[in-house]
């Protein structure tokens, strides 16, 4: 090996042979597309939902603790910050839910044609919008 950078391009085939493979350009070299944007949003909403589990656990623990603890979590959900948190959580939940079903379809070998990928992508965006608005209205009315 003459150039240490070559180490980055060397990979192994499934039968053990070494091959030199090209490096893809850095992420920032690409124009954002519906496919790539929805892909990274799946991961970002997953991280957001991890944060959202804190409220879920807080709610269960408060309900099991005392009336005052439960009043605390209810008060947070009614506050402006709490409503913003709930909105982010609900939007992330429906996005990750819808796009997760899209991913499961891919895992089953369905929907790989490019027009289908675009169509299901926009369907996920539309469904997330509708479900988020409906759920948020229901939450605000119930609170």
């Amino acid at each position: 090996m003459t150039n240490p950078r070559d180490a980055l391009t060397i990979a192994r085939t499934s039968d053990g042979r070494l091959v030199r493979r090209p490096l893809s350009p850095h992420l920032q070299a690409y124009k954002p597309q519906i496919t790539s944007v929805l892909s990274i949003m799946n991961r970002m909403t997953g991280i957001a939902l991890s944060v959202g589990t804190l409220l879920l656990v807080w709610w269960f623990v408060a309900a099991a603790s005392s009336d005052s603890a439960y009043a605390g979590v209810s008060g947070f959900m009614r506050s402006p910050l709490g409503l913003l948190f709930l909105f982010g959580w609900i939007a992330s939940l429906w996005y990750h839910f819808c796009n997760g079903i899209r991913h499961l379809a891919w895992d089953a070998g369905m929907g790989f044609e490019l027009p289908t990928v675009y169509a299901t992508g926009w369907a996920v965006v539309g469904a997330t919008g509708v479900l988020t608005v409906v759920t948020m209205i229901a939450v605000v009315m119930a609170l």
Partner: peptide
């Protein structure tokens, strides 16, 4: 024991 060398990688690999 297999001597594996890539066809396109050159003789040094």
């Amino acid at each position: 024991i297999a001597k594996a060398s890539a066809t396109k990688a050159g003789p040094d690999l």
